[in-house]
Design a protein around this nucleic acid. Structure first.
Lengths: 297, 297
DNA sequence: GGTTTTATGTAATTTTACTACAAAACGGAG
DNA sequence: CTCCGTTTTGTAGTAAAATTACATAAAACC
């Protein structure tokens, strides 16, 4: 039988996103199995509440074919397939289906953007390099000072990071102006960390920042959207892949994924701190919340 | 039988997050049903690949009891229950299980924060007031100028919004300084929109901004985390509920949910624009990406 | 064109989910 | 405390679904 030998391998695979798996495997499926794949891709939600028999009717094939299809894509059976499919569909319709249309009303736009954001985050999670993350945390935890660099949307991320990290006793700066950036970068020295944020990773001035900071002995961590030129000038490259496409309506998800990575870094660094420091942070937070309620900052 | 009359009502409910539903309904369940609820809550992943019989054995009850349990929590049957449970579990372990521990390694921290962020976004989505959203879009689409106000983490959101909206031909400002805020707010007039961002919604100075702007005839939209005092000074209150808890390690999710709402608003406003404007935005984006690759901004 | 291999459907079998009914537990009223 | 009504839970049976075995049809290879 077809694909029998591969089953074991497939069962140990990450097991994520059936839709994606079906779509990539569609070409190498049997003719009849492809019919089943098509009805699943066409309306996955429908299949969730369907039996083998119903699915067979929809695909115009026999019941065992539906079973064989489930096996072929690496499931233990039809039930197992439905469970996995359900999990893949939890974010609602998969990203490719949620392209914004001019005719969408606000409710639909909201649903689609939420879904798109969550799907993208899920994607970013599964593609994040854990080794790089660990290395970045090591460097940040030992930093004397940290400078965050970024333009535009990445500037927002830099500023956010700069608001977070000082809480853990490390002096931080965020440079968003081109000239300031070069100045600060050229003043950095061993023990300092330059945290360079750029979604494209191709902006020339930002690459220059990384080069200068590194030449002066500072450690360079970059947070970027793909394996870009910037990465080669960095000690650690945190690559946050997202599903960003060119559709003009598609909002920029990259900054959100970047913010989550900043959360992870700051939290992990905080956890390395001695307990007394953590208590101090706790106090600061409480004071801040007291201030908020009584008097403006 | 118990709960029979409610079934119809429950079937029409949002249908999201079984875990949450089970936990809240646990108290009002039958004694035996509670046993089933407990084994489900203890290891939901286990139940996904279990049959009615296995579940019954695990819970030390009879098979029909498992069925009745599924009915009691509003499912059509055991299959339906498993499908729904699978969808709830797609984010991995539910938020309440993903409390950060001092002993967690970076990989675990990353997983938990991603999960927590996604779960919270999902929560925010399901609790967002669609009517308020629609009203906010109406107001923003007709605005002559928009001013965004925010402190601290909310300041980040304000700045992000200010970077997005000008793309659609509406002049925008972001005020992050207390004195500037009051100045700008008192200069606003009819046709202007004050977009006030505050997670707590209790900071006094930010409430003052809303009051002043409104007194001058400006429309006031607020983006806040709960039905706070700020909401009562606003024409539209966009309440973005999140699962934020007091654990010191828990990162601030509110700003991420707020950013998504900003995305939704800016996208929806853009879609109201005439097509010629949209083409203009497209051009601007292309120019920007050209600049990025060749020369620093 | 015949033979081997692969793909698909038919029919039987097993498993699973669900239902009807009866026994047990519970709760009040006399 | 005992009787009766209600609710809860289990036993046994039934219907339906998933899975398997086998046979036939199609394709590929010589």
């Amino acid at each position: 039988m077809h694909g029998e030998a591969d089953d074991n391998e497939r069962e140990t695979r990450s097991g994520r996103n059936m839709i994606e798996i079906i779509r990539t495997m569609r070409a190498e499926l049997r003719k009849s199995d492809r019919k089943v794949a098509d009805v699943v891709l066409k309306d996955p939600q429908r299949i969730l509440n369907a039996t083998v028999g119903e699915t067979a009717t929809l695909a115009e094939v026999s019941q065992p074919t539906v079973l064989r299809f489930a096996m072929a894509i690496g499931c233990r059976g039809f039930q197992d397939f439905k469970i996995r499919l359900a999990q893949s569909l939890a974010f609602g319709t998969p990203a490719t289906h949620s392209v914004l249309l001019d005719t969408d009303d606000p409710e639909t736009v909201a649903e689609k953007i939420f879904e798109y954001t969550m799907t993208s985050l899920d994607w970013a999670r599964s593609h994040l390099d854990r080794a790089a993350l660990r290395k970045a945390i090591d460097i940040l935890a030992q930093a004397r000072t940290i400078e965050f660099f970024g333009f535009g949307a990445s500037g927002i991320v830099a500023r956010d990071a700069q608001q977070k990290f000082p809480l853990f006793g490390v002096p931080c700066g965020a440079q968003l102006d081109s000239h300031q950036q070069i100045m600060i970068a050229s003043m950095m020295k061993q023990g300092d960390v330059a945290f360079v944020i750029s979604n494209t990773g191709t902006t020339r001035s930002i690459i220059e920042i990384a080069r200068v900071a590194r030449a002066n002995g500072a450690a360079v961590i970059c947070l970027t959207g793909s394996d870009s030129p910037l990465a080669s000038y960095s000690d650690v490259a945190l690559i946050v892949e997202t599903l960003e496409n060119t559709n003009m309506y598609t909002p920029t998800i990259s900054r959100i994924a970047a913010l989550v990575v900043i959360d992870i870094l700051s939290t992990s660094v905080a956890m390395r701190r001695p307990l007394e420091d953590q208590a101090r942070i706790h106090n600061m937070k409480r004071q801040l919340s007291d201030i908020r309620k009584v008097q403006p900052i």
